[in-house]
């Protein structure tokens, strides 16, 4: 009984800040208010299936998937190296990954503007060596870079934790039985680190698909993503109903992705055993 009482503040917190907002979003998605009358409608959701908006969602998913893929490619080796027993500067490296997160996300993104600009830091270096300056800012690549930069730690940390947790005796056992380094990795480390990979994938993909700050600043407003569309409906247009419908569609999509990933996770776990 005691432990239950301790959970109440958390439950109340969850109800006020998670359950009620979600219910409100669902409510707004399925209603329309004309004058003082609020009535049920499917128009908000139907309106999304305009090629214009579907295309924006498709672009957001592709971009977020690319960012997640790059984060995985960059993040996995780093996590693997970090988790090695003999790696002595681990704490320094971990510290370096976490330090940027102490700074405001907006300022970090803003800094890229001065780095990538036509007369920015990077181009100054290029022109110093007699190379022509490049258009680095305000394109897909800049948005992708911003996303990878922002979310890379969210990929590294869970994978690092899951690799670190692997029982050393399993690895030693495999080595005793004659497995070479590659096989140890493929048969032991990779399967056992998959839960970390899965949570890394979701922790990067979910915020990346909904971002609007990075696309606004580094994409120069030309790469309108689903997050920008939702922001626009709430802050500029003031159509909370359509904005909520978009948010709901995005939520359903993320839930589906999660279900798929956890299913994948279970499969591989069973396989490994």
């Amino acid at each position: 009984m005691k432990s239950k009482a301790l959970a109440y503040p958390y439950i109340i917190w969850m109800i006020i800040f998670t359950v009620i907002p979600i219910l409100l979003i669902v409510h707004y998605s399925f209603t329309v208010t004309t004058g003082n009358v609020t009535s049920f409608t499917l128009d908000n959701l139907a309106r999304f299936f305009d090629p214009l908006y579907v295309n924006i969602l498709r672009r957001s998913i592709v971009l977020a998937a690319q960012a997640t893929g790059i984060c995985l490619l960059l993040g996995y080796p780093v996590s693997y190296i970090l988790a090695q027993k003999e790696f002595r500067d681990r704490n320094i490296l971990l510290f370096l990954f976490v330090v940027p997160m102490w700074m405001n996300f907006l300022i970090r993104t803003y800094a890229w503007l001065t780095i990538l600009g036509t007369n920015g830091v990077l181009n100054s270096v290029l022109t110093f060596f007699g190379l022509p300056p490049m258009q680095l800012l305000f394109n897909d690549g800049a948005v992708l870079l911003g996303l990878v930069y922002t979310f890379l730690p969210f990929m590294i940390l869970p994978i690092y934790v899951s690799i670190q947790k692997i029982d050393q005796s399993l690895i030693e056992g495999a080595q005793d039985l004659g497995a070479n380094g590659f096989n140890v990795f493929r048969r032991i480390i990779l399967p056992l680190s998959l839960p970390g990979v899965v949570s890394g994938l979701t922790m990067v993909f979910m915020p990346a698909v909904a971002t609007f700050v990075v696309s606004n600043l580094l994409g120069g407003g030309q790469f309108i993503l689903i997050g920008n569309l939702i922001e626009q409906q709430f802050l500029l247009v003031g159509n909370w109903n359509f904005g909520s419908a978009l948010a709901l569609i995005l939520m359903v999509l993320i839930v589906l992705c999660n279900v798929l990933l956890s299913f994948l996770n279970k499969e591989t776990k069973e396989e490994a055993i």
């Binding site: 036509t118 305000f138 120069g220 030309q222």
Partner: peptide
Amino acid sequence: QRPLVRAYVTDVVKDLMIAGE
């Protein structure tokens, strides 16, 4: 006009124009 436009910006336009972007 879109292909000619470098970016659609708001407040950052001030810093960008000062920097000669």
